[in-house]
């Protein structure tokens, strides 16, 4: 089994030079308020996911539950650059973090995890199948790679309707080997669709490390034969994520077609709650936590901006309160009525 090194920062190799490419991204220069907001969101995701793990252990959440702990900087950094009015987001089954980063109420997310009527999908979707068309968040898809074609369809819609929006389609290093991803790459570039393909490379497709599954393990290069430029990004640094998003958006909004962002990140927990994670050592995980944790990194930046320990503590308390309230709500709110079994199968009556 290959040892996976902790994600390195800014390790992109020289690109193919005879084509126009996006500029090399620079870390985003965030104001103190922006930094605090990013920190707040990342902490919310971290604490929410820890709570979800706890509720799973108590049997309140069933089935598969894929936690985003360790990857927070990716969703928060990227989505902070989007226009919430026009841009759409789609992802796979590890979707809680993206929803929280999009400002969706933690209560209805947690209530979906517990399978309650107040859940965002009325308890019929579960952890992997959550949507908010109001927030232009299109799921939440359980089939690995499907969201890439669907996201390309959302980008098609943006172009067709000339609505100024772009689509951000997230998928993992595992999905990056699915055939439909490349079918979508081809059509997205052929039709110059406004889409950012975000590969969240957390190093493991369930239990299989990237280099055991990928002939080309530098995933940002996967678009080259479709003429889609790729950028490798330190996914543990929220400002690097945001900076990359800005370059990618400039490229896509200029009508130059799709772009790939490979976010080098790491998940601390197992693939899902039921994963014993025997494919990597505790030391490996601990080393990433110690050296590259995205939230610890933010704390240093905030310290440099003069944010005090006391400020962070009160923020921490605020977040814990939100998460506890979400958990209480998710435990207490009722399950769907039995009659809901038969609703929403079809929209119309025949």
């Amino acid at each position: 089994m290959a040892k996976t090194p902790p994600p390195a920062r800014a390790i992109a190799e020289p690109p193919i030079t005879n084509r126009e490419r996006p500029a090399e991204p620079k870390p985003y220069e965030a104001s103190k308020d922006e930094l605090l907001e990013m920190y707040r969101q990342m902490l919310l995701i971290r604490r929410f996911e820890e709570k979800a793990g706890q509720l799973y252990g108590l049997g309140l959440i069933g089935g598969f539950c894929h936690l985003y702990i360790g990857q927070e900087a990716v969703a928060v950094g990227l989505q902070s650059a989007l226009n919430g009015e026009t841009d759409s987001v789609i992802t796979g089954y590890r979707d809680h973090g993206h929803m929280l980063a999009y400002g969706i109420d933690p209560k209805v997310i947690m209530a979906e995890l517990t399978g309650r009527n107040s859940g965002i999908s009325k308890g019929k979707g579960g952890s992997m199948h959550m949507f908010s068309t109001e927030h232009k968040f299109y799921g939440g898809h359980g089939i690995v790679g499907a969201q890439v074609s669907l996201g390309t369809g959302l980008a098609f819609k943006h172009k067709y309707s000339n609505d100024g929006g772009i689509c951000m389609a997230y998928f993992g290093d595992g999905a990056a080997n699915q055939g439909q991803v490349y079918e979508s790459f081809n059509m997205a570039e052929l039709w110059k669709l406004p889409i950012i393909f975000v590969i969240e490379n957390n190093q493991y497709a369930m239990g299989t490390s990237v280099n055991r599954a990928s002939a080309e393990d530098q995933l940002y290069r996967r678009g080259e034969s479709f003429r889609i430029p790729g950028i490798q990004v330190d996914g543990m640094d929220v400002l690097a994520c945001r900076g990359a998003a800005e370059e990618a958006l400039a490229w896509v909004r200029a009508g130059k077609g799709p772009v790939i962002l490979e976010m080098k990140t790491y998940r601390y927990r197992g693939h899902s709650m039921s994963d014993p994670a025997k494919y990597r050592t505790r030391d490996e995980v601990q080393a990433v936590r110690d050296k590259s944790d995205p939230i610890d990194h933010m704390k240093k930046l905030l310290d440099a901006q003069g944010v005090t320990e006391a400020d962070l503590k009160s923020l921490e308390q605020e977040i814990r309160k939100i998460v506890n309230e979400a958990a209480d709500f998710a435990e207490q709110t009722p399950e769907p009525d039995a009659a809901e079994l038969y609703t929403d199968v079809l929209v119309e009556k025949y």
């Binding site: 019929k124 979707g125 959550m130 799921g139 939440g140 929403d344 929209v347």
Partner: peptide, 8 residues
């Protein structure tokens, strides 16, 4: 449609 509780 079903998975989204009639939302999508």
């Amino acid at each position: 449609n079903y998975m989204s509780g009639g939302q999508m």
